[in-house]
Structures are given as C-alpha cells and as structure tokens.
C-alpha cells in the first residue's frame, strides 16, 4: 500500500452507497469472481437507492471524502418498484446544485448496476477512481 501511494502520489478516498438488491450484490460477485479493481472505495449498503438522501452526499463531501458513487438497480428493476426513479430525480437535482456551488462534478457520481454485472461494477469503480484522481484531493473544507 505504502509503495503504491508513493508511485501515484494521490490515492483518493471514495465511498460507494449501494442498493442491497443489485449493486451491492454486483460488487459482491465481482469479489467472488476475483476481479481486480481499484481498492479505494468503501462501500455502504442501503436497502434501496431511494434511501439515498442528499445529506449522505453532502456529509461525505464535507467530511473530506474525495468522491462518492451512488448506485442502484436499473430503471424498472427496483425491488420496491419505483424507488430508483425517485432517487434519480433527487440525485440529479442535488448534483446540479452542488456543481452550481462550485463542487467538481466528478466527485458525485451515480450508476445503475445489477447483481450480475460484476464486470460493469469493476469498470465503474476503476473509471470513477481515475476521474477523481485527476480532479485531485477534496480540500475545500480543510
């Protein structure tokens, strides 16, 4: 770990907020199928993407987290029928607001990922990590 840090310089701290029916399972599958992907993300499990409150995103950013990925079931696949539809609207509006206030858009991201998409999950985490690395550390509240 130490060695890696020195090589790349900045290692972002990421948080993933995942729906327990899909993305969380997808991430689990990625683990069991031994896919290699960036280890920067700490995962939080929520019962449905609709549990995501914008407060989560905001609290993460003000606690110096470098990036937050929020992921739920594909539209139409939500276990509770329409939770992800509401979550999408909320997320999009809040992201626009944070951007307007000067937050870099790369720090707050959302994805759809199902329980069988382990490859997609690994790709998402990789690309989010790269984007946040490029953006640099979040020291707006330091």
């Amino acid at each position: 770990m130490e060695e890696k840090k020195e090589k790349n310089g900045f290692e972002p701290r990421l948080v993933g907020i995942l729906c327990r029916w899909c993305s969380y399972q997808g991430a689990d599958l990625a683990g069991t199928s031994r896919l290699k992907y960036e280890p920067n993300m700490t995962v939080l499990r929520v019962p449905c993407s609709a549990r995501m409150s914008p407060l989560f995103l905001m609290k993460g950013l003000t606690s110096d987290i470098d990036g937050i990925l929020f992921s739920g079931c594909h539209p139409g696949d939500c276990h509770y029928i329409s939770g992800n539809m509401n979550a999408r609207r909320r997320f999009v509006i809040f992201k626009k607001l944070l951007e307007f206030a000067g937050m870099e858009p790369e720090r707050i991201q959302m994805s759809w990922c199902s329980a069988s998409e382990d490859k997609k999950w690994a790709d998402i985490v990789d690309s989010v990590t790269i984007e946040v690395k490029k953006t640099g550390p979040n020291n707006k509240f330091k």
Partner: peptide
Amino acid sequence: DIKIDDKMIR
C-alpha cells in the same frame, strides 16, 4: 426521465 441517464448516470 430516461433521457437524464445518458448525461449524468453511468
């Protein structure tokens, strides 16, 4: 709403 996906959601 699906239109939003292309721009903002992976």
